[in-house]
């Protein structure tokens, strides 16, 4: 029996969809069977990030309303041999086209066949949020080191306390800019974690490759050298119960004088 995890944040644009795609892919890389659910009705894009947009035949509303079987609607990611699947959101329906009960039924139907069901929650705390948490066993709250995102994450943690899931929510801090944290211009990881008072699941450094790779429909996590990818891989390992130390935020020691001199010569 698999576990359903909702990826949520309250605020938009903090990287819920990117995180869902990358954590899902990282889990598939570890050999887990993963199904991702896009619940952002009307504004689906998890399929695009995964490069699966051209393969969509049916969507979650079709399944909920009985126009398609669940098996028919699942989109398979060809890069992984029968490990990674996507159940896309509907594009042409109203946001209220789904009820929490319907989502729960679908998630419960998926759980026996998969190790993980990742639910990509839409921004906001309205019906889309309620739908997303309906079938979930656990939650990942995504935030960035910005006061607006942290404030909304706080609100979402509060709502999750009111609708408790089987497991306590865990925190993913996305888009950390090392140099800004080191200069004291950005909230640091400990500050955010202790403020929100929930367990830290992982930190992801801001990296240009996250954007450029999603533009090609290829999650950044496939590139094992990339720091953001390493962050997502660590998250996947922690979800599997491994103990993985946090990546260091502090930049490597500032290059010494001679180092800088030689670099300067190399530049020339």
């Amino acid at each position: 029996m698999g576990k359903a995890i909702v990826v949520t944040s309250g605020k938009g644009g903090v990287g819920k969809t990117t995180s869902t795609a990358n954590i899902g892919t990282a889990l598939a890389l570890m050999g887990k069977r993963v199904c991702m659910l896009d619940l952002d009705l009307g504004l689906r894009n998890l399929d695009v990030v995964l490069g699966l947009d051209n393969r969509i035949m049916y969507d979650i509303v079709d399944v909920a309303e009985g126009r398609a079987k669940l098996r028919q609607a699942l989109v398979k990611d060809k890069r992984f041999d029968d490990l990674l699947f996507l159940l896309p959101a509907a594009q042409n329906t109203d946001k209220s086209a789904l009820e929490p009960g319907q989502v729960k039924t679908i998630v419960d139907e998926l759980k026996p066949d998969f190790d993980y069901v990742l639910i990509d929650c839409p921004a906001g705390i309205e019906q889309g949020f309620m739908n997303s948490i309906a079938g979930a066993d656990a939650a990942i709250v995504v935030t960035t080191p910005e006061i607006s995102a942290v404030r909304d994450a706080d609100r979402v943690v509060g709502l999750l306390e009111q609708h408790p899931l089987t497991e306590e929510p865990r925190l993913l801090i996305n888009r950390i800019r090392r140099h800004m944290v080191n200069d004291g211009d950005m909230m640091d990881v400990d500050e955010i974690t202790s403020h929100l008072g929930i367990e830290l699941l992982g930190i992801i450094f801001d990296d240009d490759a996250v954007i450029s790779t999603s533009n090609h429909g290829e999650p950044v996590v496939l590139n094992s050298e990339n720091p953001a990818a390493q962050g997502y891989r660590n998250v996947a390992r922690r979800l599997e119960g491994e103990t993985v130390p946090l990546m260091k935020v502090e930049a490597e020691a500032a290059p010494g004088f001679w180092n800088r001199m030689t670099r300067w010569f190399h530049k020339g």
Binding site: R151, D152, D154, R155, V157, G158, L159, E161, G197
Partner: peptide, 9 residues
């Protein structure tokens, strides 16, 4: 009372 009251609660 010893609990956390979050944003919006």
């Amino acid at each position: 009372l010893s609990r956390t009251i979050r944003n919006g609660q």
